[in-house]
Design a protein around this nucleic acid. Structure first.
Lengths: 217, 217
DNA sequence: AAATATATGTTGCAATTGCAACAAAAGGCG
DNA sequence: CGCCTTTTGTTGCAATTGCAACATATATTT
């Protein structure tokens, strides 16, 4: 197995990874589209890593609405520890979207010091912290966008964040406009209307999903 | 010093805490209201713990607007690792509100295994994970509220979460209505208008900050 | 106790938004 | 290619919302 691309193991030599892999009692499993990969509240003590394929983190609302909380692609990590849990009354689970291979690590193996004294354990802990922090940053980014009161401000805020992430005024949206409307939690048509207005006012130009921010942005 | 109330050290004996305290090179500092306690991006390698008093985590917007990202009361933990960082272009810092004592721990002392092999180190790591998770949960809760499209749905969603947290249909709001309006990111007067409407329709009753949810809620 | 600040409650009005209903374009798939 | 699904783009209209401007009540400070 190639550990170098898995963020949880980044910076750790393949040899050490193999040792830990055995030491920790890691299991891997194949999933078909539609299958439930992980159920929050049930599989409490596992951390999951998507080795290949795609999955989504879903929430079933009180009102029966399914919401995508997160897209989990290759190398994504999920589990109670990296929780999105929200109000515990709703069902939250990971569903396979495209045939996927997933590794599961018992959570306490990560936190506790390994009895067999695996080297690099503290590095693993650091990586885990880093992953959790990244998740917190992503959540904060979304709050930053959602905290704006008007659609215009939400779009603008989102574009500013993308500008920062990409480091330049030209970049491609990471997903469709429909998905963007979901992300900023507004009506798609209303968002498109505002987008058109903003383009007309010269704030930015868009060719498909390619955005070009103008001057002051 | 009394460690038993500090979440980062919970479950660890006072003796062990004292040992770690020395071992980690913890420093404590007093702050007056208005003073800057911690500057994100500058004090990168420190984790802060509010031992007494109060502080707030602030963001200075591009447009010069100060936003309260988080209230930090006794035992709150903050720092780059528990980051809220958002877009790195904005200034983010912790400001003392009420005279406070704050402890700072070098971040890498928490992740790395202590050279002097302090016992209970893995417990500390667990506590740190737990704190980060709690933060993620709090962020997710807010997203859950902010993701609603109407003020009514935002209020309702917020009350449902409070109901779950309190475990009953009667509870007190943890802050003022003004603060609630900030939290759900809507105009206060519009929120009050909707609140009045919802009360009139019998969804809940409010006596000051004491909420009583009706039946179906 | 008086003075000052902060929180709560209310309303009119203009602007924004969600919703519904389209039509056209682009992608995916056998 | 032709069929089907998803995405994009647009508009009218009713409902919601933000904003501004109040009045009153409750805290907090001097």
């Amino acid at each position: 197995m190639d550990f170098s691309k898995i963020s949880l193991f980044s910076g750790i030599s393949d040899d050490s990874c193999c040792a830990m892999y055995d030491c920790f009692g890691v299991t891997t499993q194949l999933f078909h589209p539609g299958q439930t990969v992980y159920e929050y509240g049930v599989d409490q003590n596992l951390v999951g890593i998507v080795l290949s394929g795609e999955a989504v983190l879903l929430r079933l609302d009180r009102d029966g609405e399914e919401t995508v909380l997160e897209n989990l692609d290759e190398n994504s990590v999920f589990g109670q520890m990296l929780a999105f849990s929200g109000s515990m009354t709703d069902r939250v689970w990971v569903r396979c979207e495209k045939a996927a291979e997933v590794a599961f690590i018992p959570y306490d193996q990560i936190t506790k010091r390994c009895e067999k004294a695996c080297a690099h354990h503290s590095h693993l802990v650091e990586n885990m912290f880093s992953l959790m922090q990244q998740k917190a940053v992503r959540l904060s980014e979304r709050i930053e966008v959602l905290s704006r009161r008007t659609i215009r401000e939400k779009i603008w805020s989102y574009l500013q964040i993308q500008k920062t992430l990409n480091g330049k005024d030209d970049f491609a949206l990471p997903f469709s406009y429909s998905a963007l409307a979901d992300y900023i939690c507004t009506d798609r048509s209303a968002m498109m209307r505002e987008k058109a207005k903003m383009e007309k006012e010269g704030l930015f130009s868009a060719d498909g999903r390619n955005i070009h921010l103008k001057d002051e942005g």
